[in-house]
C-alpha cells in the first residue's frame, strides 16, 4: 500500500520524500562498497566478523547471478544460491541484493537485503549498507537502531531458508553495518548484535497472524485507493484502528492524518505516550481538565486527587509569580 499518495489524497500531505542528493550519494556509496567483485565488502566482513577464516583476498570468491523473473523467481534463485554456497566449503560467497520471502500474517512478503555473505565455514551474514556516517566509530543511534531492526527481519527470513537445509547452516546474529567513514566516502564497518531485535521481531511476527483477524473485522468493501474521494478514503481509513503517538510523525506517511483525528477526539496521547502515565483512566483533554478543576472525577481516584493538587500548586505558583492567570 502506498501510504504517501494515500496521505496526499486525504489532504494531509506528509513531509516525506528523499532528497536527490541523498539518493545519489547513497547509490554511489553502495556501488563503491561492492566494487571489484565485492573485494572491499568481503574484506570488511572478514575483519569485522570472521578473522579466523581465510582472507577473501586469498580464497575463492563466488558471486552467483541471482537474476530471475519476478520476486518468487528471485527468491527461489536466492535459496538455490545459498544452498550451493553453503556446500562450497572454504569459499566466500557474496549474494548481491538477494531476495528473501517471509510469511507475514499469512501472506508472503519479499525482502531485499543489500547483501548476504556466506562464510567459508558455511555460516551466513546479513550486510546492511547505509549512507549515514560512522564518525570516530559511532553513528546516530536512532539510525543504527532502525538498521538493526531491518537486519533482524532479514536474519529471521534467512533462518527460515536455513531451516529447510540439512544440516541447517548457522545464520549469524551479528550483522555487518557498513557506512562511510568520518567525512569521507571510504567504507568502514561495525558488527551489530541483533539478537534483541530478532527476538522482538519474531514475537511480533507470531502475533501478526492476528492481523488477519483485524482484516476480518473490517467492514466489507473497505478499500484504500487514492482515486476515491477524500470522504470515502477518510471513512475507509477510519475503519482501521490506529493508535497515534507523536513518534509516528517521523515514521509514517499517514501520521498527520491520524494526528488530526486523534486531536479531534481530544486524546491526551497526542502530547506523547508518557503523558498518560499519571492520568490513570482519564484519556481525553476535557476529562483531565474537568477533573483538575474539580468539576468531574472521583476525588478518591489518586489520579484525580493528584491532578487537583497539581492544579492547586500550579495556580498558587503562578499567582505568587505575579498575577499570571493559570487554572480557572
Amino acid at each position: 500500500m502506498d501510504k504517501g499518495s494515500l496521505a496526499s489524497a486525504l489532504g494531509s500531505a506528509s513531509v516525506f520524500g528523499q532528497s536527490q542528493f541523498a539518493f545519489t550519494r547513497g547509490n554511489a556509496f553502495e556501488a563503491r562498497v561492492k566494487a571489484d567483485g565485492g573485494a572491499e565488502l568481503l574484506r570488511l566482513v572478514h575483519d569485522g566478523l570472521d578473522r579466523g577464516a581465510e582472507p577473501p583476498a586469498e580464497a575463492t570468491v563466488h558471486l552467483p547471478d541471482l537474476s530471475a523473473t519476478g520476486p518468487e523467481g528471485r527468491a527461489a534463485r536466492t535459496s538455490l544460491a545459498l544452498r550451493e554456497a553453503t556446500g562450497a566449503a572454504g569459499a566466500w560467497t557474496l549474494l548481491d541484493h538477494p531476495m528473501l520471502a517471509l510469511e507475514v500474517a499469512g501472506s508472503p512478503a519479499f525482502l531485499e537485503p543489500d547483501a548476504v555473505v556466506v562464510h567459508p565455514d558455511g555460516s551466513w551474514t546479513v550486510v546492511e549498507i547505509k549512507s549515514f556516517p560512522m564518525l570516530d566509530g559511532s553513528a546516530d543511534p536512532a539510525k543504527v537502531g532502525a538498521a538493526a531492526r531491518q537486519a533482524a527481519v532479514y536474519v529471521l527470513a534467512l533462518e527460515r531458508v536455513a531451516a529447510r537445509l540439512d544440516p541447517a547452516p548457522r545464520v549469524r546474529h551479528r550483522v555487518l553495518l557498513v557506512c562511510p567513514k568520518d567525512f569521507s566516502n571510504l567504507p568502514t564497518a561495525s558488527a551489530v548484535d541483533v539478537r534483541k531485535q530478532r527476538a522482538v521481531t519474531g514475537r511480533q511476527l507470531a502475533r501478526l497472524t492476528r492481523v488477519e483477524e483485524i482484516a476480518d473485522a473490517l467492514p466489507e468493501g473497505v478499500c484504500f485507493s487514492p482515486e476515491q474521494s477524500a470522504e470515502e478514503l477518510a471513512a475507509a481509513v477510519e475503519a482501521v484502528p490506529a493508535t497515534y503517538a507523536p513518534e509516528c510523525l517521523s515514521a509514517c506517511e499517514l501520521a498527520f492524518h491520524c494526528r488530526a483525528r486523534s486531536r479531534e477526539a481530544g486524546a491526551v496521547t497526542c502530547l506523547g505516550r508518557p503523558v498518560r502515565a499519571e492520568l490513570g483512566g482519564l484519556s481525553t483533554v476535557e476529562d483531565v481538565l474537568a477533573a483538575a478543576r474539580g468539576e468531574a472525577g472521583d476525588p478518591d481516584d489518586p489520579a484525580v486527587a493528584a491532578l487537583r493538587r497539581a492544579a492547586g500548586l500550579r495556580a498558587e505558583a503562578l499567582a505568587a509569580a505575579g498575577g499570571v492567570t493559570g487554572c480557572h
Binding site: L279, V285, V288, L289, A310, L313, R314
Partner: peptide, 14 residues
C-alpha cells in the same frame, strides 16, 4: 513529565 507540566500542556490544548 511532571503532572504540573502535563496540566499546562492540556490547558494549552484547551
Amino acid at each position: 513529565m511532571s503532572l504540573i507540566t502535563t496540566l499546562a500542556r492540556l490547558e494549552a490544548v484547551h
